[in-house]
Amino acid sequence: RKWEEIAERLREEFNINPEEAREAVEKAGGNEEEARRIVKKRL
């Protein structure tokens, strides 16, 4: 699934746990840019 690939990239890029990465992607509706913004806000 594409969402899992996005979550994996976010996890590696921001050094967050898989659960946090998945939550961000879900919140963003699968949009990678939006997920990235969500993760950055949390850091």
Rank of each mutant, 00 (worst) to 15 (best):
N17F: 02
E34S: 08
E23D: 15
E23T: 12
R11K: 06
G29K: 09
N31G: 07
A7Q: 07
K40S: 14
N17Q: 14
A28C: 11
A7M: 11
R22Q: 11
I6H: 08
A24R: 01
L10C: 01
R9Y: 03
E5Y: 08
A28I: 01
E19S: 14
L43R: 11
K27T: 15
E20G: 08
N15V: 09
I38N: 13
K27S: 10
E13A: 05
K27R: 09
K40Y: 05
A28G: 12
P18W: 06
I6G: 03
W3T: 15
A24Q: 05
F14H: 08
R36P: 00
K40A: 14
A21R: 00
K27F: 04
E4P: 03
A7Y: 03
G30I: 02
R37M: 09
E4M: 14
E33S: 07
R37V: 13
V25G: 02
E20A: 09
R22A: 13
E20P: 09
E26W: 05
E5M: 15
I38F: 03
E32A: 10
L10S: 00
E4Y: 03
K41E: 12
A35K: 00
K2N: 12
E12M: 12
R42W: 08
E26A: 10
K2W: 02
E12S: 11
R22C: 07
A24H: 04
A35I: 01
P18L: 04
W3A: 15
E23W: 11
P18K: 02
A35N: 00
E5H: 13
F14C: 04
E23A: 09
E32C: 07
R11M: 15
E12C: 01
A24E: 13
N31R: 10
N17I: 15
K40V: 13
I6K: 10
N15H: 08
E23V: 06
R22W: 03
R22I: 03
V39A: 12
N31T: 12
V25F: 04
N31F: 04
E33C: 09
R9D: 10
E33L: 05
W3R: 14
N17L: 14
E20Y: 04
R36V: 07
K41G: 11
A21V: 05
N31V: 11
A7W: 05
R1C: 06
I38P: 00
E32G: 07
W3L: 15
V39I: 11
E4L: 08
K41H: 03
E32T: 07
E19Q: 10
K27E: 11
F14M: 15
E5G: 07
V25T: 03
G29E: 11
A7I: 15
N31D: 12
L43P: 15
G29S: 09
A21I: 02
R36W: 07
G30K: 04
G29N: 04
G29T: 10
E13R: 06
K41N: 15
E19R: 12
A24T: 08
E19P: 12
K40E: 13
A24Y: 04
E34R: 06
E13L: 10
E12A: 08
E33Q: 07
W3Q: 15
E20L: 11
P18M: 12
I6S: 14
E13G: 09
R42Y: 14
N31M: 08
N17C: 11
W3P: 13
I6T: 14
R11H: 15
E8K: 10
G30W: 03
R37A: 13
E8R: 12
N17H: 12
V25K: 00
I6N: 04
L43A: 08
A7V: 07
L10N: 00
E8W: 07
A28W: 00
K41I: 01
R1W: 03
W3N: 05
R9C: 05
E13K: 03
L43E: 05
E34G: 09
A7P: 05
R11P: 02
E5S: 11
K27Y: 05
A24S: 05
E33R: 03
R22F: 02
R42L: 09
G29D: 04
G29W: 03
P18A: 12
G30T: 02
I16Y: 01
I6L: 14
N31P: 00
E33P: 11
I38W: 14
K2P: 08
F14R: 02
E4D: 02
E8C: 04
I16V: 14
N15G: 14
P18N: 01
K40L: 09
E32Y: 05
E5F: 12
I6F: 04
E32S: 06
G30C: 05
E26G: 08
N31K: 06
E13H: 02
E19L: 06
E12Q: 12
L43M: 06
R36Y: 03
E12G: 14
K2Y: 12
K2T: 13
R9G: 12
V25S: 06
E23S: 06
E33D: 11
R36E: 13
V25M: 11
K2Q: 08
E19H: 10
K41V: 09
K2I: 14
F14D: 03
I6C: 04
I6W: 03
E12F: 07
E5R: 08
R11S: 08
E4H: 06
A35R: 00
R1E: 15
R36A: 09
E12N: 15
G30A: 05
E26N: 10
R37L: 10
E13Q: 09
I38D: 15
A35M: 01
E4R: 05
N31E: 11
R1F: 14
E20D: 10
A21S: 10
A28N: 02
E34F: 05
V39C: 11
N31H: 06
I6P: 06
F14Y: 09
R22G: 10
E8I: 08
G29M: 05
R11G: 14
I16A: 08
K27C: 07
E20I: 10
A28Y: 01
A28D: 00
I6Q: 13
L10Q: 01
R11V: 13
R22Y: 03
W3G: 14
A28M: 07
F14L: 12
K27D: 05
K41P: 12
E5P: 13
G29A: 11
E20C: 08
P18D: 02
E4T: 14
E13F: 04
A35C: 04
R37K: 15
N15A: 09
E4A: 06
K40C: 06
N15P: 10
R1T: 15
E23F: 01
E19V: 11
N17P: 15
G29C: 05
E32P: 11
R36S: 06
A21Q: 00
E34V: 06
K41S: 10
E5D: 08
E26K: 07
A21D: 00
A28K: 01
E26V: 08
A35P: 00
N31W: 04
A21C: 04
F14S: 06
K40F: 02
E5V: 10
E23C: 08
A24C: 06
E19M: 13
E4F: 13
L43Q: 02
E8T: 13
E5L: 13
R11T: 12
K40Q: 14
E13M: 08
G30E: 05
G30Y: 12
I38M: 13
W3V: 15
N17M: 07
A7F: 00
E32W: 06
N15Q: 15
E20Q: 11
E23M: 04
E8F: 07
E33F: 10
N15K: 14
K2E: 10
G29Y: 04
N15E: 13
R22P: 00
A28V: 06
A35V: 03
L10P: 00
L10K: 00
E33T: 08
R11I: 05
E26Q: 14
L43V: 06
V39L: 07
R37T: 15
R37N: 12
N15C: 03
E32H: 02
R36M: 12
I38E: 14
K41L: 08
A28S: 10
G30Q: 06
L10R: 00
I38G: 12
K27M: 11
E32L: 07
E19A: 14
E32F: 05
N17D: 12
E34W: 05
F14P: 01
R9V: 12
E34A: 10
P18Y: 08
I16T: 10
A24L: 08
E8V: 09
E8Y: 03
E34Q: 06
A7E: 07
E20M: 14
R37F: 04
V25R: 00
E26I: 06
R11L: 10
E26L: 06
W3M: 15
L10T: 03
R22V: 08
E32R: 05
R37E: 14
K41T: 10
A24G: 04
I6M: 13
I38Q: 12
G30M: 10
A21P: 01
E8S: 06
E12R: 11
R36K: 14
A7H: 01
R42K: 09
G29F: 01
I16P: 01
E12D: 01
R37G: 14
E33G: 05
E4K: 08
